[in-house]
Amino acid sequence: MCLAIPARIVELEGDRAVVDAMGNRWKAKTTLLPDAKLGDLVLIHAGFAISLVDEEEAKKTWQLIAEINDFRDTPNKVSG
C-alpha cells in the first residue's frame, strides 16, 4: 500500500494537477508539496504528490513496473 509512483506534472492549477507516468494520466494534488512546479517529476501516493524525484530514479521505477507487466503478460515464462 505504501508504494508511490513517480509521475510528471503535466497540468497544474493551484494545488490541482494532472500527472503522467508512462503515458497514463490521472488527477493528483500538490497540497503536500507546495513548491512543486509544472514539469516536475514527483512521487504520487494515494492521489497526492509527496516528494520530488529525479529523472534517473523515476526511470528506474518505471522500468521496474514495465518489467513486471512484461513478466505478467508472458505465459509460462518460469513455470515450465
Binding site: 500500500m1 505504501c2 508511490a4 494534488k29 497540497t31 503536500l32 501516493h45 494515494a46 492521489g47 497526492f48 509527496i50
Partner: peptide, 13 residues
C-alpha cells in the same frame, strides 16, 4: 482511512 504515515496526510487534507 487506513494506512501508515504515507496515506494519513491524504486523509487529513
Amino acid at each position: 482511512a487506513v494506512g501508515f504515515e504515507t496515506t494519513a496526510p491524504a486523509t487529513a487534507v
